[in-house]
Design a protein around this nucleic acid. Sequence first.
DNA 1: GCCGTTGTTGAAGA
DNA 2: CTCTTCAACAACGG
Length: 254
Amino acid sequence: MPELPDVEGFREILASCARGRRIKRVEVMDADVLHGAGARRLARELTGRRLAEPERHGKWLLVRTDGPTVLLHFGMTGLLLCCDADEPRHRHDRVVLTVDGHELRYRDQRKLRGLWPDDPDRVLSDQGPDAMDLGLADFRELLSARRGGLKSALMNQSLLAGLGNLTADEILWRARLRPSRAASGLTGEEVRRLHARLRSVLRSSIRVGQIPPRPSWLTGHRDDADPHCPRCDGRLRRDRIAGRTAVWCPACQR
DNA sequence: GCCGTTGTTGAAGA
DNA sequence: CTCTTCAACAACGG
């Protein structure tokens, strides 16, 4: 689930639910999700701290406090929820921060990622600029220096941070470009188009907190038994590209 | 038991 | 060195 738009939604949840409030209690139900610090140390460092304005970089959420910062990554199945304290716990709730009146819950089925109570600069040192902060000139520069495929470049977090498998497919489909194109082989006009679609897909998705599963979007048809293009009605293709399933329209995308 | 999964990583190969 | 693929991580659904 979580790509840039989802994580931006989690950031808004965190801000509205807990900003300015004090952490009363830290519960770790499953220490598998803690990286670089155990449950004891996490509780000691966070209990009594006041939550500050949260930030996001790519798919990372920075939980700022008046003391240490904790970085959250949601892997494929992670969520951040703001719950009333009397709401029953879910079996996949791994860490719970109690603030006044609410509980912030890190819920994750698969535990592929988790919490890093660590120096943000160190954890984010391998990340490229956030995809929403990347200007056209830098985008062009970065693609032109690339030897591999276009989709794998878009998903490479060290080049630009935030795009995953679904957003990359949606952006490429909107820009009418094939995922297998060489990253450095686009014309000036194609780069401009790609950059514009990148921004518009992210902007719309951030509004909804996910890629909108609308029938007019490619992502709305990914899981159809016999998926067809919502633009030209041609049959969509599924290919294994850069280790993930790419869905694209051979008729619309060049 | 098989396959697949909106993510990332390290190892191995091209 | 650059880039890609692969297996692994863990848990679940079809």
